[in-house]
């Protein structure tokens, strides 16, 4: 059984990581792009400059991993505080863990499809 303080310690650390990578994410959509935001989401820019660049892909993947944990652990905290019926805690823990893994795998598919050459 994982201690609650361990879970929350990870919550804080992932939060700090998200702050850094999130700033990078926002920057990559605005002032790091030639022409600013109106240009940022074109297919060429997104695929050739971001997803196919291993460094950007790694940063996005790390961002996704941290977010999957942080968001679904946050939801878990909210849900645990909302209700305390018997079995609720376990149901919430299991559902949120599965949802975090699902979100991570689903996002990973988007990021890594360009490196696996369409294998997914």
């Amino acid at each position: 059984m994982v201690r609650e303080s361990t879970l929350m310690w990870i919550q804080y650390i992932t939060g700090l990581g998200i702050l850094v990578l999130g700033a990078l994410h926002f920057a990559s959509l605005t002032f790091l792009v030639q022409g600013g935001y109106p240009n940022a989401l074109s297919y060429a820019n997104v695929v050739y400059d971001r997803y196919e660049d291993p460094l950007w892909a790694a940063a996005l993947e790390a961002f996704l991993a941290l977010l999957s944990y942080h968001v679904f652990n946050g939801f878990r905290v909210l849900l645990l505080e909302l209700n305390q019926g018997s079995g609720w805690t376990k149901a919430v823990n299991v559902t949120m863990a599965l949802a975090a893994i699902a979100a991570f795998l689903y996002g990973t598919r988007t990021i890594l499809v360009f490196h696996l050459g369409g294998a997914i």
Partner: peptide
């Protein structure tokens, strides 16, 4: 609480939205 909930739900929508690039690439 409010911002965490909204941004968390947005993440799910954002994953669905950006996954559209996979069929475009394939």
């Amino acid at each position: 609480r409010l911002t965490g909930l909204v941004v968390g739900l947005y993440l799910i929508a954002h994953l669905a939205e950006t996954s559209d690039i996979v069929p475009a690439y394939l």
